[in-house]
Structures are given as C-alpha cells and as structure tokens.
Amino acid sequence: MAPKNKNPNGENVVPEVQQKKTQALILKSSDGEEFSISKSAAGLSVAIKNMMEDDCAGGVIPLPLVDGGTLARVITYLNKHAEDGASDEDKRKFDEEFLSGMEVDVLCDVALAGNYLDIRGLFHDVCQRIVNGMKNKSVEWVRKTFRIESDFTAEEEEQIKKEYAWAWEGVDSDAD
C-alpha cells in the first residue's frame, strides 16, 4: 500500500473511491430474498442512490414492490453497467441479449421495477421492447397477449369497432 493511503495514525486507508465500490448493500425483495450488491452498482438506480444519500438505508433496503426473480434480473443489469472496463459497445450488446430472451410478462415486471427504482436506461429499453412487440398487432392480439379483458359495455365496444374497424385487422399474423 502506498504511503498516501495511510491515515495520520499510520493505518492503511482504502481510497474513498475504492471503498465506495467495494462496500455492499443488501436489497430485499417483496418475497424476502436478499441480494448483495455493490454500492456503485446500486447507485445506478436513482431511487436507491437517494436512499443511500439520505442515509436512511441502514444497509438493508427493502423493495416491497419488486419480487425476487425480477430483482435478480435488475441486479444482473446493474452489475454489468457498473462493471469496470465494460465499453458502451459491451453494454449495448449485453442489453440486447439481456432483453431478447424475456417473455412479455417478464418485460412488464422489469419495466415496473425499472420505473420504481428509477433506472432510466433500463426502463426506456424495456418499454421500447414492449412497444416493438405491439407493432402492427390487432386489438385482439394485444388483449390476448397482455391478458386484458375488455371492460367496455357492449354498446361502447360496438361503437369502437365501428369507428376503428381497421384496428381489429392485425397487419401481422395473430398466430404468434
């Protein structure tokens, strides 16, 4: 250890930057799973960063709106983006592969978590991915895929179908 890393008492001091990186936080999911994450990675979430700055995190941050499976994915993302030496190209490639395998319901969970934890890049990318999936799909396809029941009255439904008849014709096949 170089002399400049010693404090007045001659003890070794970890440089602040390094200390910040290596210190770990614990994130606790809604279903009670605990995840260890470096402060530098956790700080990419604006919401967690604010909690750390307010010093009310107390080492364990409960995230009652994020389940364990989703949190594990979010942490994978944060770790990659906080990684030393990961170029923008690496991250972009990682993001692409990270999201490409997710089913639409997982994407929705991750979008919700990204919004809640205020991770702009992740949130934006996930929303864009969901939007890409909806491109040229019919109303019926959207309802089926997102498991949404129409809550219009019969009259309203008829009126909408009349006014937007074209919206029911998926340009793409509804098969997938």
Binding site: C127, M134, V142, I148, Y164, A167
Partner: peptide
C-alpha cells in the same frame, strides 16, 4: 406494469400512431 398508469403511459408514448389508436380500443 400495465396497471400502473405511469409505466403504461411511458409505453404508450412510444407507440407509432396506428398502434396507439389500436391501444385506445383495448380497455
């Protein structure tokens, strides 16, 4: 996520015009 207005709005905002019009017919 699709019940959270905030998130849903962010998704709908990114839709192209025709997809947005279809989205208005969903529920």
């Amino acid at each position: 996520a699709l019940l959270c207005k905030d998130t849903l709005r962010s998704i709908l905002e990114k839709l192209a015009l025709a997809d947005l019009a279809r989205a208005a017919c969903v529920c």
